[in-house]
Design a protein around this nucleic acid. Structure first.
Lengths: 191, 191, 191, 191
DNA sequence: GATGAATGAGCGTTCATTCAT
DNA sequence: CATGAATGAACGCTCATTCAT
């Protein structure tokens, strides 16, 4: 018996993201994913109950990977500005070199695939370290008061727009660019 | 085309946006649009060559409408901060009360419908007054230097995130909220 | 606009019965029905919501047609034996020249398509005249008492078996055959 | 093939009949049979060349089992009426407590699985003792002349209908019921 | 212009069957 | 022998699009 090859799932995910980057969620079909992955259509159904299932699983994976990546090198002990800079640069790097992930996340959020219950419940804890950093910054008087989640909105909105821009006219993520963009961010949020 | 027809096209657009808000671009079908609009499927093909055509036309319309709306009450003579505030508040209001438009724009940008040539070429001139305002601000030393379009990225990213947030937990667009969010924006961009 | 052609439904029914006669309910597919009917697959879905719907509609039609046919020339005023003979000969003729209908009815009854509620509820009233005839026969002391529906069981079982037999070795429905088979039936049921 | 295998085949047959009783031949799939039998799908193909083969083998088995069962306690020396009664009561008991077999036989006869050559040729010899009994009865002047196989048609049709009826409203096979039903049968066939 | 019946390609999914383990 | 992952044809069904009315 051939063993169920868990690494095949990674291939499916990679194929799917690449396709979403090209044709969007709207153009995504099971035959396309299978072809891109080099397997028969039926094979997908060995690993996923159905299309919804595949897409939801990918959502969780992507969400987790993003969460894990943006906190690389981050520690709760870091000074607020420094901690935020680490998160910012990680986000920038991640988002720029994983553009299809961004597209997927955005489209997923406004699609029939997102059935509130499962998907949203999953998203929160990933971002907890950031939330705690921001709280601390406010307590220490370093950051503006922010009861409406303006800081995360600004941060993630900013990074997404930059990613889209860079993706269309592939530029470099130079040190200078990271510095100046962080300056915008920091000036916005500091007290 | 007669007046009556133009009205019908508006109905088609309204129906389409409402549907995209519910089922996403992925779930959008011609029968659905027709039904929502109260006409037969075939009728859509009198007004649009095909589905792509309808969606591209809607894209242009929405893009224009957004451009027109955010400059209401704006004038090139306004002081920079005040001009920016007008644009910000208009954007916020528009985006919050036209959420399906936002979803549509985002999904359109990464979909099989966007065929580079036509769509992107169209987008620029709409935003010209903003670009000029920002240039002036920099010349006058009021705004940070910005060669990488960081300011529009921040502005539009910020506003989109806020829209998404508000859409999910329908809140009010209070004066206080507009003030504090503008403070974030202004602190980010000013020199 | 082309008008929905109700006589097309008859073509679908005829095709379906003919196919069931050949391949059984088990081998029945929508593409087969469409091909046999000379239309595209999609057309079937204009007239029926889905395959279940088509099959249930056919069941009702067939059941009704059988009910209508076996009472041709029958009248509640007929003497019992004569009434029963009319029904018997009608049944025999119908069943022999409509063998696919029989196959369809039998297979339908033991298939996932028969969802108790709708199908069975429909069947009863069709047979009412026969039930009344039998009751009368018992009251008049001409027929055996029969509290377990043995008479209909015998009648319909008998006729079905004859139909199957004749279908396999196509024989004639001679007057002599009808007489002698009725003799069996009548001897069985009379007091 | 070893003993162990024969047991496994029995399991497959039992599972298949049980499934046919639930979902009909139309709903019967190899994965279902395997699951119901507690083996992997592939295992079925060790014991049977393919699905057709399995079903044909089951047909032969069932046909044989029915033949064997209805002649339990029967002997060619029995008086005609008594012999017929034995067969009748055996049939009744068998058919009522093995309803899925009946469904299977009926559906098999009008299905793509029945390829004339093999299946029909098989059926005859099983019923030989009954045929002989009937011949004797006619020679002895106890039974009606019957050149068209009306007696078996009546007997098997009757028993099938009763089985279906009882299966739907699970009643008992009381002595009284067996007596009165046999009276119908006997009156029908006796000279 | 407007309709909606008709088309057939293509979707998501399941199935009979094979074969590496 | 037994397994169940893999295959790809074929299913039920929907869709974008056409066209007779």
């Amino acid at each position: 018996m051939r063993l169920k090859d868990e690494q095949k799932i990674d291939i499916f995910f990679t194929s799917t993201l690449s396709l979403v980057g090209k044709v969007g969620l709207a153009g995504l079909t099971m035959p396309l994913i299978a072809k891109q992955s080099g397997v028969a259509t039926g094979t997908l159904y060995i690993y996923f109950k159905n299309k919804d299932d595949l897409i939801l699983a990918l959502y969780k994976k992507v969400k987790n990977r993003f969460g894990a990546t943006i906190f690389i090198g981050f520690s709760p002990e870091l000074p607020v500005e420094e901690g935020l800079r680490v998160v910012w640069e990680n986000s920038l790097r991640y988002v720029v070199s994983n553009f299809p992930e961004q597209v997927f996340l955005q489209q997923f959020m406004a699609s029939p695939y997102k059935r509130e219950d499962q998907a949203v419940a999953f998203a929160r804890p990933v971002m907890a370290p950031l939330a705690q950093l921001l709280e601390r910054g406010q307590r220490e008087g370093l950051l503006k008061a922010d009861e409406e989640l303006l800081v995360p909105s600004l941060l993630f909105g900013f990074v997404q727009q930059i990613a889209a821009r860079i993706h269309h006219t592939p530029a470099q993520l130079s040190k200078a660019f990271m510095d100046s963009s962080f300056r915008f961010l920091w000036d916005a949020v500091r007290a």
